[in-house]
Design a protein around this nucleic acid. Structure first.
Lengths: 301, 301
DNA sequence: TAAAAATACTCCATAGGTATTTTAT
DNA sequence: ATAAAATACCTATGGAGTATTTTTA
């Protein structure tokens, strides 16, 4: 029974409908002998007669009827495969597992979600928030389809696509609003509040200050930008936040935001995905969505 | 998608399990290039990638996963066909639509049913009672598998198998028990009670009396032997019943049973079925069952 | 005798094998 | 450099066609 073919089932069903080899054969667009041979082989495989051959008409045995019944549902399931393939072909659709780093997620994810649902209603977005290293691993091991991270990732297996640059701004206690303008020197002289290890934003901030983690002594760690901003408000130090976070984090009345004039620190945010992902082409169409989402996020009050 | 084969589904599933063309191929007992080609063709047919080819391992796309899921249930349904075939092969089993004439049914059917259930527990007996002409039509048109009738049927498409001869006995009012012994002359001189038209037993009785229906004037018709016997008891005439009916119909105390001495009337009871029925071989094994059932029926009190 | 299915044979499409190249890590 | 998949090419199986025979009603 290992060599049973779908054709044979189709032929048997045709035969059950026409009860006549000649007519069933032409319904299947094959010759009568071809049908005879196939049915003979099918019966040989089954080891029992499926057909009762009369001179005038062909009838099915009980077993034959059973085969027709089951064959029909098998063929129906096969036909459904075409439908599945078709709908998958039609448009960018289905599950999209999107990773996103925590220093972007709260600000960008809401508008990304909205934009995607508006533009690709058939896409089921499954966002996941994690630090870059986790996201990259998840991408490489097929647990994610795409991620929003700070570039470069420099992973050969991953395709990178830059979306926009994002400036960092200084967060100071409100009372210092009139004091010295922001500068690298100021940061170096102050207690700097940073995210805990692993967050790329921490590394980016340190890099800007031309410091490495080991030389850092006057530092406190937090695990969300909100926490850090609150700590700044309490006068415990300074911190940097990405431009996009201003709308959300700059609302308090205990801190103030200051931009750097001279050498503005920034990072590049981009999309990454496996080069081998067959959806690559369609991912390209996603980039516009995310750029738009960014515009909305910045424009938000 | 019309040319999709079960092999391709098997290959895809193997690939999803091994995530490696080489190993999946050997699991399928084919070469790696053969597998590559089949998967390529499958994807071409589907019109969308099912596989994501990485250097180290092969992964499935979302659509590929969907195909694997559906493919597995399709293959499961195909495997079930083997089981169906197997169980049908193992023994004489399944539905048996058995026709039986009314002049035998009440006396023979109970023991037939018992015997069949004891000997072929997997057979589902579906008995139907009707006159011979109906049974023959039903057989020819595949509404019955087999029938118990009086032979000969002389239908070329039907196989006949004689089971046993069945004598007819005379039923007279009890008061006539000591009168003239049964003979053809007696029958001709009396009012003969017969079954209505269509029952073969009517024709057999008439034939024995060397009468045809048209010459019959002193005749009443009934539609069951029991009714006729009751009428005999009421002194309305005579009737004939088959030997097998004695146990049931001879119990009353208003009638008596008399056997013919000289030329004993009888008929042959047999099985008939379509020559083309593939179960023919197995039907042969049924004949012993029915013969046994007859022995039981006659032996019954 | 006529209609229908089975057989005989032939051919070609294609599944599959081997050898090799390309690709990706 | 190496492992793996794709490609090229060849072979052989088997699905399907035509012509014919056998069967059965």
């Amino acid at each position: 029974m290992k060599n049973l073919t779908l054709k044979q089932l189709r032929y048997l069903i045709a035969l059950s409908q026409h009860q006549h080899f000649g007519r069933a054969a032409s319904a299947c667009a094959i010759s009568q002998p071809a049908l005879s041979v196939q049915m003979k082989e099918l019966e040989a495989m089954v080891g029992a007669p499926l057909l009762e051959r009369g001179g005038r008409q062909v009838n099915l045995t009980l077993l034959g009827e059973e085969f027709v019944q089951r064959g029909q549902s098998i063929l129906a399931a096969v036909d459904e495969l075409s439908d599945v393939a078709q709908s998958a072909n039609d448009a960018f659709s289905g599950r999209l597992r999107l990773g996103i780093i925590p220093t972007i997620a709260p600000y960008l994810l809401p508008s990304i979600t909205t934009q995607i649902q508006a533009n690709f209603p058939t896409v089921q977005l499954q966002p996941r928030e994690a630090i870059t290293s986790t996201l990259v691993t998840d991408l490489l091991e097929h647990r994610l389809d795409m991620a929003v991270v700070a570039l470069p990732v420099s992973e050969p297996a991953l395709e990178e696509f830059a979306l926009f640059d994002e400036a960092f701004v200084l967060v100071r206690p409100l009372k210092d609003a009139e004091k010295s303008p922001p500068s690298q020197d100021l940061l170096n002289a102050s207690r700097l509040l940073l995210l805990e290890e692993g967050h790329c934003f921490r590394d980016q901030a340190l890099s800007f200050c031309a410091l490495d983690g080991t030389k850092l002594h006057e530092v406190m760690e937090g695990n969300s930008l909100s926490t850090l901003v609150q700590m700044v408000g309490a006068g415990l130090g300074l911190t940097l936040i990405p431009e996009m976070a201003i709308a959300l984090e700059g609302r308090g009345n205990t801190t103030c935001i200051q931009r750097f004039d001279d050498i503005e620190p920034k990072r590049t945010i981009g999309l990454v995905w496996r080069r081998t992902n067959p959806m690559s082409a369609q991912f390209a169409s996603l980039k516009d969505i995310v750029v738009q989402a960014n515009a909305l996020a910045i424009a938000a009050p």
